[in-house]
Simulated scan of single mutants.
Amino acid sequence: MSIALDVPLARSAPSSVSPRPALSMQIVSPELWDRTIAQFDEACQEQLYTFAKTRWPSVEHEPVLFWRGSEVVGGSLMMIQPLPMRLSALAVAKWGPMLARADHPDRLDIYAQMVDALVADYAVKRRLMLSVLPRASLSAFNAEYDHLTHRGFARGSELGFPNRYIVNLRLSDEEQRKSFEQKWRYHLKKSEKEGLAFEHGPAARLPEFAALYEKMLDRKKFADHSAYETVPALMAMPNETLRPELFFVRHAGELIAGAIIFKAGDRAVYLYGATNDRALPLRAGYFMHWHIIRWLRDNTPARWYDLGGTDGFHGLHQFKKGMVGDAGVIQPVPPVANYASHWWPRFAGNAAFFGRDSLQKLKREIDKRRADRAKPDQKRDEADASE
C-alpha cells in the first residue's frame, strides 16, 4: 500500500521510563520513497530508487518506511532478486535499513525493530533469504553488524578490500590541514602554487566530466565495474538534496580533473573522479579534494566525507589514507549478513551467493592476466587493518 503525502521527520525527545511503541512498516511509492529519504541522516545512493532501478533493472524494488507513531524513523529499499528457475529469491537490503536520525536516542532499538520486521515479513512470511549489508561504522565496533550476528544472521560474502576512508568535515581550515598526513600536506601546498582553479558546476556540465572520465579509463587501463551508467539519472533528479554535485579543476583554461559527489545525509560520498594526463604532475587531485572538503563543510550538513575504497590499488590507499589523516577514520564495510528461517531458501541463497562470488573471482583473475588492465598492488595487511 502506498501513501501520497509527504512524510514529516520529527526530532524526538530523549527516551523516558515508559516503553516505546512498536514500529509499523509500510511499502510506499518509489516517488515518495526518494523524496522522504532525502531527509534521512543515513541516506545513500544505493538506497535511492532512482539509482537502483538503473543499476539492478531485473529485480523487484520495494521501498519500505518504518513509523513510530506519526514519526518516520527509518526505512529500507528492499530488492527482491529471483534465483535461477525462480526456485526461490533473495531479499536484499544494501546499506539498509537506514535510520532517519543517526543521533536518535533510541537508534539501536529502532534498528533492532526494523530488522525484526524485515525478518518477519521476508524470511518468515515469504520464505526468502534476507541479506543485509550495513554500512561501515565510524568506530572499530559496528553495532549494526553486531546486532545482526546476535540476531542469528550468518556471515556471508565480503569485499576483498573492505576499508572505507572517511574524512571529518567539521573542522576549521587550520584543523583540517593539520589533520592531513605530512606528505599529503606537502603535495597540497605544491598544488596551490600551480595556478589551479576550482569550479563548482551545474548538472548540465556532466558531458564535460564524462569526456574526462572516458579518457582516464583508457589511459589508466582500469576495468570499470562501477555503476557509472546510473550517473545520468542521478544528475537529472529534480530533488536538489539527492542530486549529486559536480566539481572541476582547471589549469591554463583546460579542464584537467573532475569529481561527482553525493551529498545527502550525514556522509557525503565520493562517487567518481576523473583526470587527464596533466593532472598528476600538477597534483590536481590534492587541490580538488581540499576544496571539495571545504565546500561540503560550508554548504551541507554532512559531518563526514566517505572517499570509498581502493579496489586493491596501493596508490589510492596512500592518497586516501593521507587525506583521512588524524581526524578521520578508516573502517571496513562488514560482511553481508544472511538470514533464512527455512532450509530451502538458506540452501538456495547460499548456493546463489557462492556462484556469484566464484564468478566475480574469476573475472578479477581474468582482469589481472590481461595486458590492457591495471594490476591491483595493495597488500592484504593494508586492506585488513582498520586505522
Rank of each mutant, 00 (worst) to 15 (best):
residue 12 S to W: 08
residue 16 S to V: 11
residue 19 P to T: 10
residue 25 M to I: 00
residue 26 Q to P: 00
residue 28 V to H: 06
residue 29 S to A: 15
residue 37 I to K: 01
residue 48 L to R: 01
residue 50 T to D: 11
residue 50 T to S: 11
residue 53 K to H: 03
residue 55 R to C: 08
residue 57 P to T: 11
residue 57 P to F: 08
residue 68 R to I: 06
residue 68 R to M: 13
residue 72 V to C: 14
residue 80 I to Q: 03
residue 81 Q to S: 03
residue 84 P to L: 05
residue 86 R to G: 06
residue 88 S to R: 03
residue 90 L to V: 01
residue 97 P to C: 08
residue 98 M to C: 08
residue 98 M to L: 13
residue 100 A to L: 01
residue 101 R to S: 11
residue 110 I to T: 10
residue 114 M to R: 08
residue 126 R to M: 01
residue 126 R to A: 02
residue 130 L to I: 01
residue 139 S to L: 10
residue 143 A to F: 11
residue 144 E to H: 10
residue 145 Y to N: 04
residue 147 H to F: 02
residue 148 L to E: 02
residue 151 R to Q: 05
residue 151 R to K: 10
residue 151 R to Y: 04
residue 159 L to N: 03
residue 159 L to E: 06
residue 162 P to C: 05
residue 163 N to C: 08
residue 165 Y to K: 09
residue 168 N to T: 09
residue 169 L to E: 07
residue 174 E to W: 05
residue 183 K to D: 13
residue 186 Y to D: 13
residue 193 K to S: 14
residue 193 K to L: 14
residue 198 F to Y: 14
residue 202 P to N: 13
residue 204 A to Q: 15
residue 215 K to P: 06
residue 221 K to D: 10
residue 226 S to C: 00
residue 227 A to Q: 00
residue 245 E to R: 15
residue 247 F to L: 07
residue 248 F to K: 08
residue 250 R to D: 12
residue 254 E to K: 09
residue 260 I to R: 07
residue 273 G to S: 10
residue 277 D to N: 10
residue 283 R to D: 12
residue 285 G to Y: 04
residue 288 M to A: 06
residue 293 I to D: 02
residue 294 R to D: 05
residue 298 D to R: 07
residue 304 W to E: 00
residue 305 Y to W: 04
residue 306 D to I: 05
residue 318 Q to I: 15
residue 318 Q to E: 15
residue 319 F to A: 11
residue 321 K to R: 14
residue 321 K to P: 05
residue 326 D to H: 12
residue 327 A to F: 04
residue 328 G to W: 03
residue 333 V to D: 04
residue 334 P to A: 03
residue 339 Y to K: 00
residue 339 Y to A: 01
residue 341 S to V: 00
residue 350 N to S: 14
residue 351 A to T: 07
residue 351 A to D: 09
residue 352 A to I: 09
residue 358 S to Y: 09
residue 359 L to R: 13
residue 360 Q to W: 02
residue 371 A to S: 14
residue 378 Q to N: 06
residue 382 E to C: 10
